[in-house]
C-alpha cells in the first residue's frame, strides 16, 4: 500500500455546514499540508479520520484499512496532536504518560522520557503549569512515543513562538525520513508549510479546491497585477480570483506561464505564496 492516508468522497453535514465529496491522499514518506480559512472543514476532516464524529458518506483508509471497521488497529498507527492538547491537567507529565501508555502496545517508555528531556519538559511538572508551547511539545512527545506511522496535527503551530515552530518543523522533517511514515498537518500558518510540506490540500466551504504537490502549486500559481484592462472578457478565464481596486486589478492565476505569455509586459506577474493563494481564493471574487 503506497498511501498512508486515502480519503474518498468524504461527506458530513451538521447545521449549516456541509463537507462535500472530499478526496485526497497522503503518500508514505511525505508531509501533506491542509489549509483553508476558518470554518472551511479542516478540523472536521481530522475528526472524521479519527472517528470523533460520524461520517455521512465516503471512505477513510489508513495504510489500506478502513478507519471504522478496523478502528483499533488503525488508531494504533496514528499520532494525533490537537490544537488544544487535552490531558488531565492536574497530573504530572510522567503520570499523563502513564494514563496513555497502556493503550499502545508499541509505547516506548525510554523514548518518551528522552523526548521530555529533549523538549525541556520536566517529567514532574503538572500539565496545567505548562505554557502553550510546552503543551504542544508534550503532545508531540506523546504522539512520537508510540511509534506512530501517521502523524496528524491540527493547528499545532498557532500561537507558538518562531523558535519552537522551527523546532517542530525540524522534528516533522526528521519523522518522515523513515519513508514508511507520513504527516497530515493542518495550519493557518502557510509559511510553515512552504518550508516542509510536499503536498498541499486547500479546502474552502467544505470542498476541496485543489490537492496537489507544493512545487506544482508554487510553480504554476501567480499573482497578476495590472490595470483595469485585466478585467476584459478575453482575459478573465486566466484568473481563479480577482480583487478590483479603483484603478488597478490584482488577480490570482493557476496558469502562470499562460498568463505571462498572453499578458506580456502589460501586467506584473509574481510567484504566489500559499498565503496569497489562500487569501485570494477566500476573499477574491472567484472566476474560473
Amino acid at each position: 500500500m503506497h498511501n498512508a492516508l486515502e480519503i474518498d468522497r468524504l461527506a458530513k453535514s451538521y447545521g449549516d455546514f456541509r463537507l462535500r465529496d472530499v478526496s485526497f491522499s497522503v503518500p508514505r514518506g511525505y508531509i501533506m499540508g491542509l489549509i483553508g480559512p476558518n470554518g472551511a472543514g479542516k478540523t472536521t476532516i481530522i475528526k472524521l479520520i479519527l472517528n470523533l464524529i460520524r461520517r455521512d458518506g465516503g471512505e477513510v483508509r489508513i495504510f489500506g484499512s478502513d478507519n471504522r471497521s478496523r478502528e483499533v488497529e488503525v488508531k494504533r498507527r496514528i499520532g494525533f496532536v490537537h490544537d488544544a492538547p487535552c490531558f488531565f491537567e492536574h497530573l504530572t507529565l510522567r503520570n499523563v504518560g502513564r494514563t496513555i501508555a497502556p493503550f499502545y502496545p508499541d509505547w516506548d517508555g525510554p523514548l518518551f522520557e528522552r523526548l521530555l528531556r529533549d523538549f525541556d519538559l520536566p517529567p514532574g511538572k503538572r500539565f496545567v503549569k505548562l505554557s502553550r508551547g510546552m503543551k504542544m511539545k508534550f503532545a508531540l512527545a506523546v504522539a512520537l512515543s508510540h511509534k506512530a506511522d501517521l502523524l496528524i496535527l491540527d493547528e499545532p503551530t498557532s500561537g507558538l513562538d518562531p523558535v519552537f515552530r522551527r523546532e517542530l518543523l525540524g522534528r516533522l522533517s526528521a519523522f518522515i525520513q523513515d519513508e514508511g511514515k507520513a504527516v497530515l498537518f493542518s495550519t493557518h500558518i502557510t509559511a510553515d508549510l512552504e518550508r516542509i510540506a510536499d503536498f498541499i490540500t486547500f479546502i474552502r466551504e467544505g470542498e476541496i479546491v485543489f490537492s496537489t504537490s507544493k512545487d506544482e502549486i508554487l510553480g504554476s500559481w501567480a499573482v497578476v497585477k495590472g490595470g483595469l484592462e485585466l478585467l476584459a472578457e478575453d482575459k478573465r478565464p486566466l484568473f481563479k480570483a480577482v480583487r478590483k481596486r479603483e484603478f488597478s486589478v490584482q488577480a490570482l492565476t493557476a496558469i502562470a506561464a499562460e498568463a505571462r505569455r498572453r499578458l506580456g509586459p502589460s501586467a506584473v506577474i509574481e510567484r504566489a505564496t500559499l498565503e496569497d493563494i489562500m487569501f485570494y481564493l477566500s476573499r477574491g471574487n472567484g472566476h474560473a
Binding site: 496514528i78 488544544a84 487535552c86 493503550f103 499502545y104
Partner: peptide
C-alpha cells in the same frame, strides 16, 4: 468531572479503543 473539565474524552476517543 475531570474528563469534562480537561476535555479528555476527545483524547480517549482518539486512542486505539472502540
Amino acid at each position: 468531572i475531570f474528563e469534562d473539565k480537561d476535555k479528555t474524552e476527545v483524547l480517549y476517543a482518539g486512542l486505539p479503543l472502540t
